[in-house]
Amino acid sequence: MTKELTGNEIKSAINAKFNDLIISVEHDHLVIKNNKEKLLDFFNSLKKENKFNLLSSVTSVDYMSKFVVVYHLTSIDKNESLIIKIPCGESRKEPSIISVTSVWRGAELQEREIYDLMGIYFHDHPNMKRLLLWENFDGHPLRKDFVS
């Protein structure tokens, strides 16, 4: 059975130097600051030190007040999974976050999908363009304020 880490377990598992990134500890996930400089280090250490080598899924939710990018990570070696949420784009204008493609290649298409449908820009992504919709499509359909 894959062990789903609780918020507290995730907090104790991660490297202590990233503690200042934590916004809050929820019962089944951590909420992390959208810090452009340290975020990639944080994910790198999750992958290297904590062996979370499989990025199950990256997705995003539009909560109107903010966008949240949700990472589901799995460790194949330890059979554990965790959830990390990163709020971004509080002002709803050009929300952006660092791309994790350099850590997990599996994020490549998912991040493009998020950019396409939710309009969150991923910095340092090798090929940041629309995935499903056509190039000059107006708007991002999965946003709650999208009017077709």
């Binding site: 080598n53 997990w104 290649r105 599996g106 998912q110």
Partner: peptide, 9 residues
């Protein structure tokens, strides 16, 4: 390694 890294399942 490549397969895991690319989220291939």
């Amino acid at each position: 390694e490549d397969a895991i890294n690319a989220s291939i399942t």
